[in-house]
């Protein structure tokens, strides 16, 4: 369970990213977070695994107060949270399976870490994760030979191999064409249903958000302006999130990083 209580976040340059955020997300939910570029979507999910710090309020994830963690605790806390990025963030000059194996690095002995020698059971786990996203046959290909959709599925396999409770996805389909985007969203949906992992997705394709997510959170200028079932999202709600209809993002409008 993820719980935001009166969370505030201001960047050092004075920009307010989150304002009085109160949210509760239960285990196994599939949540889409929508809003304009720069509204604070990215900040919201990055606070959950403490890639960003919050200034005020408390953030609790599975009964752990995230703000109180330090050093080593943060790292072991992050093991239970997977993260997916818009630009995949894979090591492109190495093989697919090596990328997936990285999720098991913290569990290795120091010399295995150094040499990069993975035990057999880790390799099996990695291959099984690749099998789950349907790219087992690409295991020994180099990542830069794969298409964007395939690369995002490698990233997904890397996260699955981590066996997390929660998956955070920051614009996972923004760099993909519409057809591939659907395939990747299908993967998310299936994982959510089969394994009961919570999934939080930042997404600016409103149609995809409504189609796949059970719950939609709308953010405008750092504030939660809508939180409810995706079936209940009406044109009025969208106008409220995006200001006016003119601001509703178009399909090819990539969201800029919010820093």
């Amino acid at each position: 369970m993820i719980e935001f209580k009166d969370v505030n976040k201001t960047y050092p340059n004075g920009v307010t990213a989150l304002k009085n955020v109160n949210l509760t997300i239960d285990q196994g939910e599939f949540v889409a977070i929508i809003g304009l570029s720069g509204a604070g979507k990215s900040t919201l999910i990055r606070c959950i695994n403490r890639m960003h710090e919050i200034n005020e309020g408390t953030l609790t994830v599975n009964d752990v107060n995230v703000g109180k963690l330090s050093g080593k605790q943060i790292r072991s806390f992050r093991r239970k949270i997977g993260m997916i990025f818009q630009s995949f963030n894979l090591v492109t000059r190495t093989s697919v399976i090596n990328n997936v194996l990285i999720s098991s690095v913290p569990e290795l002995s120091w010399w295995r870490k150094l040499v990069g020698l993975f035990p057999k059971e880790k390799k099996v786990e990695a291959l099984e994760a690749l099998d789950k996203v349907g790219i087992l046959d690409k295991a020994y290909n180099r990542v830069d030979q794969l298409s964007g959709g395939q690369q995002q599925r490698v990233a997904l396999a890397r996260t699955i191999a981590q066996n997390p409770d929660i998956i955070l996805a920051d614009e996972p389909v923004a760099s993909l064409d519409p057809v591939t985007a659907k395939v990747v969203m299908d993967d998310f949906k299936r994982i959510n249903q089969e394994t009961n992992m919570s999934i939080l997705i930042n997404i600016h394709h409103v149609e995809l958000a409504l189609e796949y997510a059970d719950r939609v959170i709308g953010i405008r200028q750092g504030e939660v302006v809508y939180d409810g079932k995706s079936e209940d999202v009406s044109q009025d709600v969208l106008d409220q999130i995006y200001g006016s209809i003119d601001n509703v993002p178009k399909m090819d409008d990539p969201e800029e990083a919010e820093v």
């Binding site: 057999k120 390799k123 099996v124 291959l127 099984e128 087992l136 020994y140």
Partner: peptide, 14 residues
């Protein structure tokens, strides 16, 4: 471990 995974494991380039 299913069969496809076992096969792929053996294919690992040595």
């Amino acid at each position: 471990m299913n069969k496809a995974v076992a096969q792929q494991l053996e294919k690992a380039p040595n």
